[in-house]
Design a protein around this nucleic acid. Structure first.
Lengths: 342, 342
DNA sequence: GTGAAAGCGCTAACAG
DNA sequence: CTGTTAGCGCTTTCAC
């Protein structure tokens, strides 16, 4: 168990001051005008003994940790874990590490996590916020902690935000079904006040209204999707047998829907056209493949990282906050082929 | 932007010493014999102003960070992200946060991450190690840093380890196919020296040999699975048209395999029986459902966390290292139903 | 019972 | 150009 060497040991060993070592280690030797020889010598020695600075001490002193907190709904969800993978990759390139937390979309859990990571002095937050976090987000903003929201946002707070054009995309998805001869299109979504779900709902309603169709909406409770989701959808379809296509508000709802259709022995797309908001790795492997409005994850991740780094690097006190809306992409598969009238 | 209050401010405000505050905050007032009244007063004030200790300073002083590093192959992989979710949940209950890194199964990346997190003084590591990390792992061991390996291990190093019984499970899976009348069973795996893949291979070979069958083995390069995996499997099947069932070494290989079978227009299980090592959320939604040897993730996670906490809490210098092997579970679906001879 | 003071390892004024 | 020094916020020994 080799003892940890500190900057002090190095200074002692080399018969120079701590400052000199610190300066050289931080690449300020040029800037301050230290001699080449000295710099070389220190760097060489440091390399030799494999010295690693104590990040804790550094952070305590500088107030910077080079850690970013990514707060998502659930790391086991493919959308979020893919976002996490992208963000990690991008931030690594800039010398940041990421620490993440799963909120399970619960306000209390999210608050706890934000507090915790703020206490740990993370240099910034990327947050997919559950409902009711307005005051905590405002708190972070007031403390001038770099912050980006994504997937959804608060209409009442001005934050840097990255989202997809939920309304447009939902509308397009439903229009796609309509163009392919589906006439009674149901929307399975969450009972949620969050902007992304509200916008998707509005997109659905717009498309339906534009064509003078009837809307069929089923809102599931987020926390109960895993318990009763399938039953709820089965019931919805049983009560509305005229429905000939379903648009799902998220990919996990689509998965539940597929199970529900299985149970009802309804075939896709023969008995029921299907489009999912959010793609999923495996939708292309289903038979039939499931058509999806895909969120361009790499684009979203890039934008978030850019906004965050911009804030970190920004010196101006009143940098204008930016909202970035990226377009979703429709991935057409067989679950939404033209309906043949019978 | 409210200024951060420190223990010093509290002491000043209350006209007592820093020590007293610190002692009380750490619950040592009883132990040291501080007056009830004093204790109450401080606790109340601290609560009132919402004081939060600076974890960095605390960590610098104590050497403990209450952070555990979880090193996995890829956070976007459903197996690993589910492990991450479980481990996070369990460690949270013990006051630990987790910071993770994706190694992409690359030695260099893993070494870099280990160094990085060690520099950040994490209190322990849970690692799914890529090949060639022996010396780094030994380094951690020598520094007495708590450490658990999972999914695979090094035969040459004595570490706490949690794995599934890869050999037995693979053997069982293949036997299941054999019992259901499949006679020419191919094994699609990775070209990897890692223990888990070696053991699965041996399990396959044992089952095949036991029945005097012929083995058909296709090893794909891990790094090229996403590029050429499908083509490779297509070629394998084209070259060995007698194969009537496939056993896949991991769930993502299974996904590639399904695409390959699609492309060859071979139906499951009519033309090809299928079993996957590792389950996947969506295997039950495929038509037909894909039979899988599932790793019991919650059990694995629990065991890992237990072993890690044991090490953290252990005082004895030479605690015996433990290897835990949990049984995998076969989830039978339609992809492996009895083959009807024709 | 409570407080003063040292020090964890590092950075950055400030001096010389 | 280089060294001295004062903290960052906290824990903990030792003294009163």
């Amino acid at each position: 168990m080799k003892k940890k060497v500190s900057i002090k040991d190095i200074a002692a060993q080399l018969n120079i001051s701590i400052t000199t070592v610190s300066l050289i280690l931080n690449g300020k030797s040029k800037q301050v005008g230290l001699s080449e020889a000295q710099t070389e010598r220190v760097l060489k020695y440091v390399e030799e003994i494999g010295y690693k600075p104590n990040m804790l001490a550094k952070s305590l002193r500088t107030g910077k940790t080079k850690i970013i907190c990514l707060l998502i709904e659930d790391i086991a969800d493919p959308f979020f874990s893919t976002v996490a993978a992208h963000v990690e990759e991008l931030l690594n390139q800039h010398g940041y590490k990421i620490i993440y937390g799963s909120t399970k979309n619960q306000t209390a859990k999210a608050i706890e996590l934000i507090d915790l990571f703020r206490d740990r002095h993370v240099d910034g937050f990327i947050i997919c916020p559950p409902e009711g976090l307005e005051s905590d987000i405002t708190g972070l903003l007031n403390e001038r902690i770099p912050l980006v929201l994504f997937d959804r946002y608060y209409k009442t707070i001005d934050t840097d935000t990255v989202i997809v054009d939920n309304l447009e995309s939902a509308c397009k998805a439903v229009n796609y079904l309509i163009e392919h001869n589906y006439k009674n299109i149901g929307f399975v979504t969450l009972d949620s006040e969050q902007t992304q779900m509200q916008d998707r709902l509005q997109g659905y309603e717009k498309a339906i209204t534009d064509h003078g169709f009837t809307s069929y909406i089923k809102k599931l409770s987020f926390s109960k999707v895993n318990q009763t989701g399938i039953d709820d959808i089965v019931q919805f379809l049983t009560e509305n047998p005229q429905i000939d296509a379903l648009f799902f508000g998220t990919n996990y709802l689509t998965l539940k829907g597929i199970e529900a259709l299985d149970r009802l022995e309804l075939s896709i797309p023969g008995n029921m056209g299907v489009i999912s908001f959010d793609d999923h790795d495996v939708f292309k492997l289903f038979k039939p493949g499931i058509t999806a409005m895909a969120q361009p994850i790499s684009q979203i991740s890039e934008q978030m990282v850019n906004l965050l780094l911009e804030q970190i690097d920004s010196t101006e006190a009143d940098r204008k906050r930016k909202k970035i809306i990226v377009p979703a992409i429709i991935r057409i598969r067989q679950s939404s082929v033209t309906k043949t009238d019978n």
